[in-house]
Design a protein around this nucleic acid. Structure first.
Length: 178
DNA sequence: GTACAGATTGAG
DNA sequence: TCAATCTGTACT
């Protein structure tokens, strides 16, 4: 049985584990009768409230970031720089502000969603997906298509675009690339 | 109320 | 290297 939708238990695991296991999984977006999908090839972990780069640093809760506190498997989507949407997936238990940013997909159409902003534009994702449950939604979810990833295929590097958080947090190797 | 900076991108 | 352009935060 391939093409298996990921269930709640997958997302509730520790965030760094989910961030790595998401690599090689497929993100599926249904628009009417059409399906867009791509293999996840780049992720980043954000683990509030201690993570200075996280929107939930020091336990902050705002209308924008509250989805980060939902139980694992919910969409946390927000606008950066006034123009680009960022697709995140909440992880861990309810009340824990932890999430994984989906940064890049390898797409079947030959188009490469090679950045978090471009990825959302390609999949037509916006605020209407805020808080969407990936374990239940009919328009967006994740599938395990049987791709096996060896630990040697995963590269851990610094996260991108968060130098403002100071060298300690900016240098955490919480970005994972296939 | 005003000021300012950000989990990015594409153009110059 | 820089501007586009909106949300949240830190001020007055």
């Amino acid at each position: 049985m391939s093409n298996k939708r990921l269930t709640r238990s997958f997302y509730v695991q520790p965030t760094l584990k989910v961030a790595q296991e998401l690599l090689g999984k497929y993100l599926v977006r249904r628009i009417g009768k059409k399906k867009l999908f791509g293999k996840i090839v780049e992720t980043e972990a954000y683990i509030g409230p201690q993570d200075k780069a996280s929107h939930a640093y020091r336990g902050r809760i705002t209308p924008r970031n509250k989805a980060e506190y939902l139980v694992g498997g919910h969409v946390y989507i927000y606008l950066v720089y006034g123009m680009y949407w960022q697709l995140n997936i909440s992880t861990g238990k309810a009340g824990k502000p932890e999430c994984v940013l989906i940064r890049a997909l390898d797409s079947h159409l030959g188009k490469i969603a090679s950045g978090p902003g471009k990825l959302c534009r390609y999949l037509k994702l916006d605020k209407s997906f805020y808080g969407e449950d990936l374990a239940r939604s009919k328009r967006i979810w994740l599938e395990d298509r049987g791709v096996k990833i060896k630990p040697s295929q995963i590269r851990a590097t610094k996260r991108i675009g968060i130098d403002y958080a100071g060298t300690y947090w900016a240098n955490r190797k919480w970005r994972f690339v296939l």
